[in-house]
Nucleic acid binder design. Sequence first.
DNA 1: GCATAAAACTAACGATCATTAGTTAGACTT
DNA 2: AAGTCTAACTAATGATCGTTAGTTTTATGC
Lengths: 192, 192
Amino acid sequence: MISKDLSRKESIQRIGSNLFRKHGYTTTSMQDIASEIGIKPASLYNHIKSKHEILVHLLMQGANLFVDGMQEIKSSSLRSIEKLERLIGLHVHLSVEHTDLMALMMVEWRHLENPEREQYAALRENYEANFRNILVQAMQEGDIREIDTEIALFSILTTLQRFYSWYDKHSDLNSLDLEKHLIQCLLGGIRV
Amino acid sequence: MISKDLSRKESIQRIGSNLFRKHGYTTTSMQDIASEIGIKPASLYNHIKSKHEILVHLLMQGANLFVDGMQEIKSSSLRSIEKLERLIGLHVHLSVEHTDLMALMMVEWRHLENPEREQYAALRENYEANFRNILVQAMQEGDIREIDTEIALFSILTTLQRFYSWYDKHSDLNSLDLEKHLIQCLLGGIRV
DNA sequence: GCATAAAACTAACGATCATTAGTTAGACTT
DNA sequence: AAGTCTAACTAATGATCGTTAGTTTTATGC
């Protein structure tokens, strides 16, 4: 039965993303995942091909969330400085809604092997390049002070990429307030 | 002979830190470390007690670098804003001189078990608390704009903590220039 | 050169783990 | 009720790995 198989497969992936995040990919055993569901490890293979497949699927799913979000913002007709604000909002939103996925994307992608590894790296670099373009353009439009582009990009991206871990300890806070404060902190400083 | 034992032990630790950093703690085998040195895995145990001991030693070593650095800056008679600049310099310096250690401290501490885990966490939290104090004090001294302390602290600390990975791709750049740019980027924005 | 200790080696153990093969129970279709 | 398919189970395999025991080689001090 298709629908039941899908939901079981999805629950394997959801539980996998949570355990991978909490204990790391290699440290998490199929036993761990299975017992969390309440079945035997061998039974997992009725739904998935391998442990590695779970990781690959989760990472690609996460990457696509960023690809889609970037595409929408990039192709909008906003000023570049506003695009930057939207990008911050995207990261906050994804960190809040997909915390486990974000953690995996930062930490566990090293377990990818080619060709997935290169594919993932390409998506990441593409995202970074788009981010850089928007930052540079905001500078050219005069909305941002003249600073070292690479360092500023690194600082902003790193803060956004690790935001999920900070949010973990402050998940009582309002998502919109967080976005506002983050915009003020990351852009307020470099705005002209 | 003591001195030769020490240097072999130290080389195990140095190679361990490099491999742990490149491939992760669990993925790195004693075989990997041994063959990098040119001996058999079992021979490692003439110099160390366990694989885990290597990790613990490296993490504590790294943590102490920060404890010492913080102690010196904290007890100086500088203005708080200058202390912040010194802290940025400390991170740049440690990232450049101990890149592998910095990577381990960010990623592999999760493999610690109690009591080392709590001990490490305590050092980290203590460092963070000192950083927060200096930031708040700089605000009270009027050298920094009124912004959300927690978000600003998170943003600055995260950027500094991950700087090692950025430096990895830009290791041709002058350490002093990097420090200057980072100060401008992290503090220039929030300065009054 | 001889004694001693450090540090290498070989061999093996025990545990864990991802995965496969083969089997059984249960649910839905006809 | 019979037949079919899904998804669970048991059992086993092969591989890896950290570590230990016991032995041999190498280097050092006298």
